[in-house]
Structure formats: C-alpha cells, structure tokens
Amino acid sequence: MKKIIEVRDLKKIYKNGRGVTGVNFDICQGEIIGLLGPNGSGKTTIMKCITGLVNMDNGTVKICGTDIVDDFEKAIVNVGCLIETPSAIGSLSCYNNLKLISNFYSNVDSSRIDEVLQITGLSKYRNDKVKTFSLGMKQRLAIAMAIYQKPKLIILDEPANGLDIEGAKELRKIISGLAKEFMISFLISSHQIYEIEMLCDKLLIIKNGEIIENCDVNSVKNEGITLEDYFIEKTN
C-alpha cells in the first residue's frame, strides 16, 4: 500500500533535555495508527515535528514523498491536524474561522465549509463567535478544520478531549468513515486506551522519547491480553 508518511531518525531535544530521538515509522494509506505513551514521553513532540510547529534537530519527515523541510507547502497540503488545544480565532465566527483556512485551498470548493460543519454538528452555531464556545465545541471546530481539505493524513492529539460521550462516539464514527471511505490515514494519540483499541489498526508505544513497540492491535488482542495490560507490560 502507498506510504503516506515516512519518518526517519527523527530527533528533537528541548533545552530542558527532554524530547524524542531515533523515531522511525511509516503510515500507509487508510491506516489508523495510535500513539500511546505516558505523559511527557514525546507524543506531541513527534506530531509537532511532522507539522513543522517545532524544528527537528535531525532526521527526515516525508509526506506523500515530499520532505517537509525541502517543500513545506507541498508536503503540508496533505495534512490536517489538531494538536494539543484547539486553535481558532475567538473573536471570529465559526464560519469565518473556516473561511480563513479555506483560502489556502483553492482547489476545494467553499461549499465544503457547510459540509464539515454538518459532519461535526456545528451547523447551527456557524455564525456564533468561537469565544462563546465550550471546550467540546472548540474541539469539534478544530476537527472540522483538520478534515476541511480532505487531507491524506490527519493528525489528532487527544481528539476526544472535552467531548461528551455522544461526541466521542460520533468522532470515532467520523474517523472510521473517513479512513474507509476516502482512505485517509490517521495518527492519533490518546490516553483513552479503549478509544485506541476501538479505532486503530496499529499501535506505536513511546517511552522516554523513543518508540519501544510498533505492533498490530489485532495481533495483541489475539494473544488474549488486553491492550491496557500490554501497554503497562511494555512501559514498565
């Protein structure tokens, strides 16, 4: 299957000495990969390096064959993301926030704005200012922004944060639907092991900035142990 992202020897060490080192993995088209690790293990750093939010010390990240350092615009056009907290302009309406990002994708019809608002259940709030939104609604908007251009890879960092039970279930449905219908790949980090178990095909376990396990979720289940016990066994 076609590789959507190739990460090789990724290294980023912050001034406090923490970070990630020697990170290698690939994600193929339509795959949903879960990134699991204890707090501070480097999950968000990997995601930030892939999206260019932090500069890597070493290594390469290729998205659809394009190195993000060589041609950032060409590489990042294939990526949608939600990293840490939802990022939107509070003083603008939900619609105007999406309109701003739509300007960067001239090949996508602007009617897509209404489509993503419908998908994320924000249609009735389209003209409301984002500063009046709850965390869950902001999270929905950030997901709408991440899927707007129908990217080939979507990176979601704790996507169910702030979502209610129904919202989290809907989100899982959206992710599975996009992966199956449009063959969109996902890289998802979450502390909800149940969510990873239900959604992901593969699992990357990270500890102290290094990927210590790259496994198939179904093969773990077939061994007769829960993902939770498997994770604890590997990280201890």
């Binding site: 999206t51 260019g52 939010l53 950032f72 615009e73 060409k74 990042i76 056009v77 990526v79 993301c81 990293i83 840490e84 907290t85 990022s87 939107a88 302009i89 509070g90 926030n97 701003l100 990002i101 960067f104 994708y105 922004m145």
Partner: peptide
C-alpha cells in the same frame, strides 16, 4: 499567547 497562530502555521504557507 492564545495559540491561534497554530491554525495558520499548519497550512500550506511557509
């Protein structure tokens, strides 16, 4: 400070 810069930085613009 309000993190809204991320919204633009992850778009196809250097």
């Amino acid at each position: 400070s309000d993190n809204s810069i991320v919204m633009t930085l992850v778009r196809p613009i250097t």
